[in-house]
Design a binder for these strands. Structure first.
Lengths: 150, 150
DNA sequence: CAGTATCCCTCAAGATACTG
DNA sequence: CAGTATCTTGAGGGATACTG
């Protein structure tokens, strides 16, 4: 059996540390990205990513164990399985969008083509996400504090 | 010299893939988190994270090379350096907040304590970030499409 | 204090072959 | 097609010692 990750961060009181421990792995994040893009089958992920089969097996297992994917019987009647996002998994959408928006802004040359995320109905790109106060005002990092433990 | 990362994703047209390639590494993300928490010195990061010195050297080097940190002379007059977020680095704030908010909601038991991010002035936690259309309406993953290349 | 230089060991990762 | 099993390589990562 392939090993899972270190896990030592799961005892941390910082939610960032725990979240990083669960999903901040290159293959894991790309699998989740593809799931938001509608992929569900082992072969869909495997071909799209060019990931080694054993790696994909490992990542899918971890994602299911983490409650991010759930396994369902294949919708086409074959005896295989589909990996679909749970509610917990779907709530990773803002995280994937945050990766995307930062990448769009900072990792492409002027005029260089990139794949874009659009609102299907309007064809418009999304608004740039930013943290806001409860009143809806955009907040800058310097205006925030971490309260150590609650 | 310690090696940098694979880099093969930097040719990808998907901004998520490129961004993942640059920053989706456990230590890298925790260093950036600490930078938002005000840390600037090698020793600050090292003690806070318990990271091996050589690992920290490698991560800081990569972060500077990626334009996320810039090196400045120490503000206390010593001959050492400080690592401060550039504008590009500061724009990772929504990403870190996305990790935090997902972690808060899904990786702590009911009533379990966690370190919280607050608006300093009001003491209030931030609003839950979510992707919106240009009109400000919250959008769900199923309402979006990736347009392959532009 | 802020790094650099080694050493060493585990594990991540790909390649390949096999199975129901 | 959807995995599992095995093998090998090299990178990730910690520990320790050294340097300006």
């Amino acid at each position: 059996m392939l090993t899972s990750k270190h896990q030592h961060l799961q005892a941390e009181p910082c939610p960032v540390a725990r979240a990083v421990d669960v999903i901040a792995d290159r293959w894991t994040l790309l699998v989740v990205r593809d799931a938001f893009d509608g992929k569900r089958r082992f072969g869909d992920f495997q071909r799209g990513l060019g990931i080694a089969r054993s790696m994909l097996t490992d990542r899918l297992r971890n994602l299911v164990a983490a409650g991010i994917f759930e396994v369902k019987p294949a919708s086409d009647g074959t005896s295989y399985q589909e990996y679909v996002l749970t509610s917990k998994g779907s709530q990773l959408f803002p995280l994937i969008v945050a990766f995307r928006q930062w990448g769009e802004r900072h990792l492409f040359d002027e005029g260089e083509a990139y794949s874009q995320l659009l609102e299907t109905a309007s064809g418009e790109p999304l608004e740039l996400m930013s943290p806001t106060t409860v009143n809806g005002r955009t907040i800058r990092p310097e205006e925030t504090t971490v309260r150590k433990v609650r």
